[in-house]
Amino acid sequence: MADMFFTKDHEYIVVEDGVGRVGITRFAQGQLGDVVFVELPDVGAQRRQGEETGVVESVKAASEVFSPVSGEVVEVNADLSDHPALVNEDPQGDGWFFKIKLANPAELSSLLDKAAYDALVASLA
């Protein structure tokens, strides 16, 4: 059973067996507009919670992607290099950015659950 959490910066993380799949939310991609380039971390990179772990560029601007948790990057989404538009088309599915092995699963309790994130988005609309 996978658990999904969100950050106030509009990243999501889907956690399964101690590994989190991270991307930006449907709301975030809508705000950014057409994604034309994604810069991903190196596999093996260590990140602390809240640390910059990638960059997403739309036609309008570049935005940093922050890791929702601490850990080691174990995989990146190679499809985004040739198809950055996947972030727009399927942000919470095929448009994921990287997978990270959680160093401290307790950090998840500092993130938003779906209800809390939906409320945040509603307050921004």
């Binding site: 507009g33 057409d34 034309v36 036609v59």
Partner: peptide, 12 residues
Amino acid sequence: PVNYSKGVLAEH
């Protein structure tokens, strides 16, 4: 407007 519903790429 920066863009309308179809977005910058489609408008361009």
